[in-house]
Design a protein around this nucleic acid. Structure first.
Lengths: 190, 190
DNA sequence: GTCTTTCTTGAGTGATCACTCAAGTATATA
DNA sequence: TATATACTTGAGTGATCACTCAAGAAAGAC
């Protein structure tokens, strides 16, 4: 009996993610969102409740797609090759709104104020790290990496390297492909 | 003939740097600054002109002290040992308001809006990178690092690693000392 | 067609933003 | 002591912030 909304909620979340990813939390005003999502304030708040709530949904979507993409890659080329390819891939996605990791940007921006979204970003980064560790462990099982290494430690370093790489990739005076190649080369030496 | 200001300008810039470093640009309001610097709006604007102008001074101070500290360290222990010690040192400074690099935080927060301060942070990061490259080159001259390596490439990777490390050091679920040790170990293998 | 339910619209809310400025106060020189 | 020259004070500026809500419009059920 009721009327249906004119928007595609999933599409709106994806578009909001791109805006937040690029401009950050404080850098994105409701005016920005209303313009880009073509939603008047009333519809916006009926659909999402608050700016923070939408940011949370966007953050979850970002992390979920990131993990899914890496897992799918590992299923295709195996864990070691996936870990080696990932650095190059994350800085080459040209349709992405930014090179830097949205989780890291969120954490860096909001952690000092103990914002709930910073906590959420931290949890999601931790899950991402666990995903890396699992792939390192699988690579060890496959005999590609010496068993003497601790997969959790490898994952921690690897994630740190990726965060640095992706931040560096935003800079015009840095050749991020060289860094990506060096990170991949490090994995080969394990 | 005139009255002297009651504040120490250098001290105010240092205090402002710490606030901006921790809370970011948008995350720091003039109310925050007025409270921490104990300056009423009139005095604040007479002294610094604008929030952005003070942020710029704070950024310059941050970068200048960072370079000076590393150069002093290199003079004491030599270029190779300085580069190896730096990762541990940057995450161990307990009186620092944050572990992450202020230049990186500024760049990440403001680059999307082409803010002048992001450009300034980028230039300062570039200067820092040049400082790293110089130390790598000196280490090669001293015979500590094989001449086959490009010092600029080493510096780029090293800086990227440091950015990742320092961001990781903000997280409670990460053992940053392990990462720092691994980065130092990488330098030994060159 | 009529009713019910939900969505859309957009002016308007108080709070906070960076910033201004006129009035008051203190100090070094004459 | 008188005067000139800053510095300090804090109420107040318009703009923008996230957000609200009442009224109008549209679509399924009957």
């Amino acid at each position: 009996m009721p009327r249906k909304p004119e928007y595609d909620r999933d599409d709106l979340i994806a578009r909001a993610r791109d805006i937040f990813w690029r401009q950050g939390w404080a850098g994105t005003s409701l005016k920005d969102l209303e313009r880009e999502l073509k939603l008047k304030p009333g519809s916006f708040y009926a659909a999402f409740g608050s700016k923070d709530a939408l940011y949370g949904l966007a953050l979850d979507r970002y992390a979920q797609e990131g993990v899914a993409r890496l897992r799918a890659l590992a299923d295709r080329v195996g864990p070691l090759e996936a870990l080696k390819a990932q650095p190059r891939l994350v800085i080459e996605v040209s349709r992405a709104p930014a090179k830097a990791c949205m989780l890291a940007k969120t954490y860096a921006e909001l952690q000092a104020k103990d914002h709930e979204l910073a906590g959420r970003a931290g949890v999601l980064m931790s899950e991402m790290k666990a995903c890396f560790a699992e792939l390192f462990r699988q690579a060890q099982e496959a005999g590609d990496i010496a068993l003497s290494h601790d997969p959790n430690r490898l994952a921690t370093r690897y994630q740190s390297d990726l965060l640095g790489l992706r931040l560096s990739a935003e800079r015009s005076d840095v050749d991020a492909h060289e860094i990506a190649a060096d990170i991949a080369a490090d994995i080969d030496r394990l």
